[in-house]
Simulated scan of single mutants.
Amino acid sequence: MSADPRRVLVIDDEPQIIRFLKIALQSEGYDVITAATGADGIRAAALQQPALIVLDLGLPDMDGNEVLQRLREWSDTPVLVLSVRAREEDKVKALDAGAHDYVTKPFGIQEFMARVRVLLRQRPASALGGTTAEAQASATIGEITFDFALRKIHLRDEELHLSRKEYALLTLLARHVDQVITQQVLLEEVWGKVHRHDSHYLRILIGRLRQKLGDDPANPRYIRTEQGVGYRLMS
């Protein structure tokens, strides 16, 4: 069975949540399949090949993070975690394990559906949740144009003059547009594993990029801070 771009798998053991999500997703034309346990969810992911998985962390047979880890052994399907766990460390753990986004219960259905649409617009290509930009020679995000082949970035037709690390950080965010990338992953990718806890390096570099993009930190157009978790580049 080939993957259906409108098929969504919901792995959650709360009947009311499943009913709520089915109504919302089906009203926008999505084909919804459900599973109430981690084992059934993994099986459904393999047999039904959904385009997106919505995953609760508190399942009756195994922790949702274990489900995520087992999925990531063979699948790059985008995973949207939906959980009552609101602690920063829970969000970071899930995102580092390969989740593409994280929504805390209770949640607003409009925001949830917007995040679903974002993830379904994208094609996974790596553990970081790569998008189609991963394999493209160029990409345009808002008024920013990326030429990955020539290693050039333009803002409104003006070339941005970036340091090597500024370029690496901005293109990393661009290749995973609209997805949260944790601080730890960004630090490891740009500075190396020995600097995975040097978050001040990241804050300084993000500040420089925002200046060059003319991005207001309080009301960002491009680089959004996910407090205590990481950053995302918005399309």
Rank of each mutant, 00 (worst) to 15 (best):
P5W: 01
A51N: 02
I153V: 15
P78W: 04
T34K: 03
A35G: 07
R7T: 12
A24E: 04
L82Y: 02
H176M: 09
D4K: 03
R72K: 09
E158F: 09
S235M: 12
L173Y: 01
D63A: 15
M62A: 15
D13L: 11
L169T: 04
K165N: 12
R123V: 14
K91I: 11
R72F: 04
R123S: 02
Q179A: 14
L25T: 11
L173K: 02
L82A: 07
D12M: 14
Q16C: 01
W191Y: 15
V10H: 11
P217T: 08
E159K: 09
A218I: 07
K152C: 03
H197D: 04
T145L: 15
I223A: 10
L71M: 14
E188Q: 12
L202A: 10
S75M: 12
A99P: 00
G38K: 05
I204D: 15
I109M: 15
R210M: 09
M113T: 09
S2V: 15
P78N: 04
E88W: 00
A135D: 04
Q184K: 14
A86Q: 06
Q16Y: 05
L173Q: 01
V229K: 01
D101I: 06
F148H: 00
I181Y: 08
R221T: 06
R232Y: 14
T132L: 13
S126R: 05
D157S: 15
L95W: 10
F112K: 02
S75I: 09
V190P: 01
G29D: 06
K193A: 14
D216M: 08
V10R: 05
D4E: 08
S75R: 10
F20I: 06
L80D: 06
R221G: 01
D215W: 09
P124F: 04
R117G: 15
A97F: 02
G41T: 10
W191V: 05
A24I: 01
T182A: 12
A94G: 07
T171S: 08
A139P: 00
L21R: 03
T225D: 15
L55T: 09
D12L: 14
A35H: 06
A39G: 13
V79T: 11
A125E: 03
S163I: 08
S126G: 06
